[in-house]
Nucleic acid binder design. Sequence first.
DNA 1: GGCCTGATAG
DNA 2: CTATCAGGCC
Lengths: 257, 257
Amino acid sequence: MKIATFNVNSIRTREPILLDWLRDNRPDILCVQETKVPDEEFPADAFQKAGYRVTYRGEKSYNGVAILSRELPRHLSFGFDNGHAADETRLQCADFRGFTVVNTYVPQGRAVDHPMYPYKLDWLKKLRAWFDRRFKKRDKVIWVGDMNVAREPIDVHNPEVRANHVCYHADARAAFEHCLAWGFEDVFRKFHPGPGHYTFFDYRNPQNVQRRKGWRVDYILASRPAAGKARDAWIDLGPRLKSRPSDHTPLVAEFDG
Amino acid sequence: MKIATFNVNSIRTREPILLDWLRDNRPDILCVQETKVPDEEFPADAFQKAGYRVTYRGEKSYNGVAILSRELPRHLSFGFDNGHAADETRLQCADFRGFTVVNTYVPQGRAVDHPMYPYKLDWLKKLRAWFDRRFKKRDKVIWVGDMNVAREPIDVHNPEVRANHVCYHADARAAFEHCLAWGFEDVFRKFHPGPGHYTFFDYRNPQNVQRRKGWRVDYILASRPAAGKARDAWIDLGPRLKSRPSDHTPLVAEFDG
DNA sequence: GGCCTGATAG
DNA sequence: CTATCAGGCC
């Protein structure tokens, strides 16, 4: 099973890049974030014509998650099990052939002194509690998405100056590690232990892409039983190098079964 | 001599369409309107590389005229001879091999009850007075551009409902005819006396293009001595049918000499 | 720098 | 519908 995650930064603007990528890569499951479109305006037709079923929950301008998959998921839910509609455009959970796929768009946090930062930390805490309630260690869970956290120094191109960045600040990293500590393995890192692998390159300095100065903030994480089936993982820089790109690029993994 | 006029509705956005069109048609002179770019940001390099010299006067967001030509014009001026800088982005005059080319972007007028409408009528009056001052009947003058006026019923797809449209209202037509009465012939009409020839198709109903529901508001007009040399004229719908088109499309004429 | 909005313009 | 802009966001 080939599964990918891609923060598209507007699914409408990225439709041509997505269709090319689906045609060339044919993943079984593609989880996307930041669709930035209300459900009634989601461009589902184009993806259906390309052979993909689409499930999504979005809002105008902000957030929005979707799963494009060759088969329809057996079970599907959005948000935490607490009735907060706000989280439905950041968290999606779907079952495919014995795997449970969790697709998240973790709040970015804006700035460490902004109210959105405690919201981010709290959101990660709620996510861990949701993992505890929802899954057993023996479940084959694959948690993917834009986590808006770089785990380690090698996950940012210049960690020395990032201590106060919301995506590298100690508290954000600790909150993310606490989620991982539920029982997830970092599938990409398993296959690529070295530095210099990034999934996000800020638009503001266009040279960052060619110079490979980015962030690894998108992940494919797997519970022990799922991680055992991981065969390979890679970052595809192609879409980031096209014209009118997202600032993120796809991360892909293959699992047996 | 092959001369063309094309309201590009942003020369930046239309650069690819323009470069293709110049490569395929190789006019001696292409007059463009609505460049929508300040002079310091005009993308002259791309056209120079394509073998064209460029003269232009524009402003941010609105208006802007330019002439792309294989040879540099001998004489060049912008605006009326009254020192009003505002008109310099709507009126350009350049000499080429014995012809004087006048390139205009006539004010659209917004609505018949809007202050821009009397401004439009007044602008056409000033233009006629400028013709009177500036040219002799024996001059070979070619006046081209987006005139924002449909002369006759056959120049709009449904004239019955257009009586109060700023581009077909009786006052606008009279003011335009008064300009023509200086001594211009309608070169396109000479070769194509029938209905159904349009140079503009409103974006607001995308089906208008395929259904050929448009307006003839762009013209190539010639003083008697120049009109005598006109060999052919045609509208090229090609650029209007491409992706990300202008709402106008090029009008072309060939003159002997 | 490129996404979004909501305004103005044609 | 397709341009422009400013202003918010990341």
